[in-house]
Design a protein around this nucleic acid. Sequence first.
DNA 1: GTCTATAATTTGATAGAC
DNA 2: GTCTATCAAATTATAGAC
Lengths: 180, 180
Amino acid sequence: MDRAGTAEKILDVAESLARHGGYGGFSFRDLASAVGIKSASVHYHFPTKEALGVAMTQRYNDRFLDSLGDPRDSRSVAEKRQAFIAGFRAALVEENLMCLCGVLGAESASLPQPVAAAARGFFERTRDWLLEALETDPALGDAKAREVAALELVARLEGAMIMAQSLQDVSVFDRVAASG
Amino acid sequence: MDRAGTAEKILDVAESLARHGGYGGFSFRDLASAVGIKSASVHYHFPTKEALGVAMTQRYNDRFLDSLGDPRDSRSVAEKRQAFIAGFRAALVEENLMCLCGVLGAESASLPQPVAAAARGFFERTRDWLLEALETDPALGDAKAREVAALELVARLEGAMIMAQSLQDVSVFDRVAASG
DNA sequence: GTCTATAATTTGATAGAC
DNA sequence: GTCTATCAAATTATAGAC
């Protein structure tokens, strides 16, 4: 245990803090003290906050997409949809945190451009995953209908997470997620 | 013109800045310089940032709810739904800003408690407005179904706004909004 | 790779003149 | 009501010892 290098630990803590209070909501000192080092040591691993923000977001995106599995595997469309919803639910309920890119997306206009671009990548990749997963859905014949269905599901889950947090009621997420 | 008092101007600018970069994303100095005064003068009108945050959010909520009209007036359910969607769309497209409480909701866990409570009020009040507006919807018989429909619409629109901003594509909002 | 020390800037907030 | 002046604290970031 504890085999993770310092850079990984920094990304773990940075992600937690950013999913709590956004990109502007954590400082190198918060971060360093939670990791157990000094803020100067954080700069050794990530030269700037912007570089840390990009690395953190890319790692989040990769991990989330990975957890969904192959959108073209043998699972049914319903199973894939449920796996997608479960990914968001786990972020909210098991980790008790927001979706990183939901938070970053909300403050997107004020982020350093490379961080905003990394957050944008989350929405492009999740949309594309759903586009492939929904390809065999008989209720969604053409590509346009599939794209709207994909965008709509991501939007609904992101909004539901924010409302569940603000209203302090996880059932808000569950009821909205099941309303598709 | 320019009859608005300084306190109102401060709230106008604070709201703009917060809808751009969140509660943590603006400072009293940013704010003051945009209004054309000094930061010490902002403290004359609002003693703390927390007090300013609460006033700004309550005013936003009142104005948004006001713009929706009476949820029990003679309009059809479809008209009221469209008015609700139009309120969100105007925030995004005409003002080119996020929904204040979407942004605050995303960073809710890191806000001063009174500001988080004010943001929560937005979601309670919009949900309640929709509950009343949907009361005559023949497709939504019982109160539970109406509440899910209300939560779902707010969630979908909030998520769609964030995605439209992050993907820099207003049509994302329109397509998701119309997908109900 | 981590530290101490520090620079340069920004933050929310206050005191007191006008 | 607005200002100047200022404070204490926090911010990102760097230099250089170990």
